[in-house]
Simulated scan of single mutants.
Amino acid sequence: MSRSAIQSRGSAAVTGAGSGLGRDIALGLAAKNYRVFGTALSADEVADLKQPSNGTVSLTVCDMTDEAAVNGWAREVESRTEGLDLLINNAGILTPGPLEVLSLGAIHREFEVNVYGALSVINALLPALRKARGRIVQVSTWTASLPLPFNGPSGASKAAMEAFAAVYRAELKPFGIDVVVAAAGNMKTGGPAKTTAALKRIADGMTPEHKRLYGPTFGMFADKLNSMQESGLESVAAARRVIEIAEQVPAPSKAGVGPDAEDILRFVREHSDAEQDARRLQIVGL
């Protein structure tokens, strides 16, 4: 399918399409006459999207960390299309906390989902993307460019995927496949409630010594993070921006989703490491 088809009608795959930003991306693409395939975490998410999408979004329960399940989903997508025009790799998790406090298992899980799962999806869908000379959009975050204290696993895993995206961009260029990073800012996507629960879980699990060392500053970070998310872009607006980036011609290598993301990306390009260190502390109120 030609590049102009990406701007009007085609097929799209969206990971994490059962809730939050991914759900709104899937519905936004369906409204633009894309045939949308997505992954979900549960049968409830699949059922929840059926009516709003009028059946135009086909969701499959799929654990991105299960390579066999991902390959099975990719085969299903390929069998139902003549090629995939767009992959929006959106699914991800957040593991906040002081690095000294977080277990290696928790950090490993973040990379399992945000990095290895994302790589698995891309590789599984590449045959279909090659057929259509399609486009990959890797949803990232501005904290991949300006990592924040107490948010290390998220920033590190997203930064890793941005590095992989740059390599894919070079390796897939001969096949006509564009690879774009959409760096998201703060969003109201259902994430704040999950973030609050995660922050409380980490704080409650600290030893007395860790609470003495990190309790006050981690509490300030938690309050600031919740405030930033609550004041962020509405999910539908963020999804609209991701779709705009996905359809932009020529394809950008990286673009911000929201004014705060665009501001941070610009700041990182223009300022020294010392200035960035000061900014990251200022952002989280430390």
Rank of each mutant, 00 (worst) to 15 (best):
T95C: 07
A184G: 10
E162L: 13
P174K: 00
L172V: 00
A198R: 09
P147Q: 11
A183C: 13
M187V: 11
V113D: 04
E100N: 05
T195V: 08
V121E: 07
L125Y: 05
L99R: 05
G97R: 07
L148F: 12
D178M: 01
F111G: 07
S145M: 10
G92Q: 09
G117I: 12
L129Y: 05
H108M: 05
A132W: 01
A124H: 07
S120E: 08
A165H: 14
E112S: 06
I107N: 05
L148N: 12
F164S: 15
L102Y: 04
T143K: 11
W142K: 14
W142Q: 13
G117S: 06
E100T: 06
K173T: 00
P192S: 02
L148Q: 11
I88C: 10
N186L: 06
G176N: 01
S154W: 14
H108A: 06
A128V: 05
Q138P: 13
V181D: 02
V137F: 14
L125S: 04
G190V: 10
K200G: 03
E171N: 05
S154N: 14
I107R: 09
V179S: 01
A106H: 03
G92R: 08
V101F: 04
V137R: 11
L146E: 09
A118Y: 08
S120W: 10
D85W: 04
N114V: 11
N89W: 10
G134Q: 01
V137Y: 12
E110L: 07
G97P: 05
G152E: 14
I177P: 00
P192A: 02
V167R: 09
K158D: 15
G185P: 10
T196N: 03
E112T: 03
R135Y: 08
A128N: 03
E171Q: 08
L129G: 03
A132L: 02
A198F: 05
G191I: 09
A144T: 15
G155D: 15
H108Q: 03
Q138G: 12
R130D: 02
A193E: 04
R135N: 06
P174C: 00
V180I: 13
A160T: 12
K188A: 10
K188S: 10
L94C: 07
P127M: 06
A170E: 02
F175A: 00
S154D: 15
K131H: 01
T196Y: 00
T141C: 12
V113I: 08
P127A: 02
A159L: 15
V115C: 11
K200L: 06
V179D: 00
K158M: 13
M161E: 12
P98E: 07
K194N: 04
L87M: 07
P149E: 11
P174G: 00
E162V: 13
L126H: 03
F150Y: 14
S154H: 15
A144Q: 11
R130V: 02
P153A: 15
I177S: 01
P147Y: 12
E171H: 02
N151A: 12
V115Q: 09
N114E: 10
I93Y: 09
M161C: 13
Y168K: 01
L94M: 09
V113E: 05
A163H: 14
W142G: 13
F175K: 01
N151V: 08
L104R: 09
I93M: 11
P174R: 00
V167F: 10
A160P: 15
A156N: 15
Q138K: 13
M187L: 12
F175Y: 02
T95S: 09
G176F: 00
S157T: 12
L87V: 12
S154I: 15
S120I: 04
L104H: 10
G191M: 08
